[in-house]
Nucleic acid binder design. Structure first.
Lengths: 145, 145
DNA sequence: AGAAAAAAATATTCTTATATCTTTTTTATG
DNA sequence: CATAAAAAAGATATAAGAATATTTTTTTCT
């Protein structure tokens, strides 16, 4: 459903958000090591998130990544849109193109109505779930990312 | 969300189910042409469905494919399981492995509970939706597959 | 039996996502 | 200013899904 890139991105942001406030930048190597993800691949992803002003990145000694926005203002939807785009929210489940909810000139498909209900729930979930929420849940349930 | 293979398979089955009862076998070329799908690729998919006893296939002159089961007894879930497997129903959205709803020994992930609600709805949809339903919907709304 | 039609099986190519490697740029610090 | 640390950028490799091409098997019909 989500690409690896997107999942890695989400996990990295949860990771950064769960570090103590006092911690400044964190290097890519450290992040990749702790999350057991491929370093250069993760770097690419974090660069995309930095371009979208979700992350802050600084080069040079003591450089690294940190959250640019407050974790209460970063939703799963922000990350998914940045990395995977909006296709998963618009594409039909059985056709390649988008269904008529988006483009009214096209005839609908027979699964359309039922599926769009489920999809709407999914979008709501992504839109309402902030990184702050996730970190809180993770901490209260002693879950590691 | 679903692979191309799976979507093509679903469409082919809806296609076959919407043919008049009197029609016997339909050749792969005909199906591929009408649905505008790549012929040999679609053939592979229909072979999988034939192995799962969803379709009937016969070789030789006047051979082709037809439904083996009544369209009321074929659900979307049957097709999805056959072609894409069960991963989409078990995999976590942010981890690679399955979450703890399946394997209780693993710690859950922070999105788990919310996501599994949406996923359960999706599974219900796939399980309850029969090909017969889809053909009826398509006909009543003058939709083509 | 032989020819033709059709699916099955096999092998190959193409494309894209995933992953890695190398070089370049930036910046803090001695 | 020189050096080193770190990310950015670019180029390259790998794997999987998607698509195509070719050969084989099965079956019907003459």
């Amino acid at each position: 459903m989500l690409s690896n890139s997107c999942r890695y991105g989400i996990r990295a942001i949860i990771y950064l958000a769960s570090l103590p406030q006092t911690k400044g930048k964190t290097g890519i190597k450290q992040i990749a090591k702790d999350l057991e993800l491929p370093t250069p691949f993760l770097a690419k992803i974090l660069q995309q998130l930095a371009k979208q002003k979700i992350l802050n990145s600084t080069k040079g000694p003591h450089g690294g990544f940190s959250l640019l926005k407050d974790s209460k203002n970063i939703t799963l939807l922000d990350i998914v849109k940045t990395i995977d785009g909006e296709e998963i929210f618009t594409n039909c489940i059985i056709h390649n193109e988008t269904c008529s909810s988006v483009d009214r000139s096209k005839k609908s498909c027979p699964v359309h109505d039922d599926f769009s209900r489920v999809r709407t729930d999914l979008i709501k979930l992504f839109r309402n779930k902030t990184i702050y929420d996730l970190v809180r849940t993770a901490k209260s349930e002693e879950i590691f990312i």
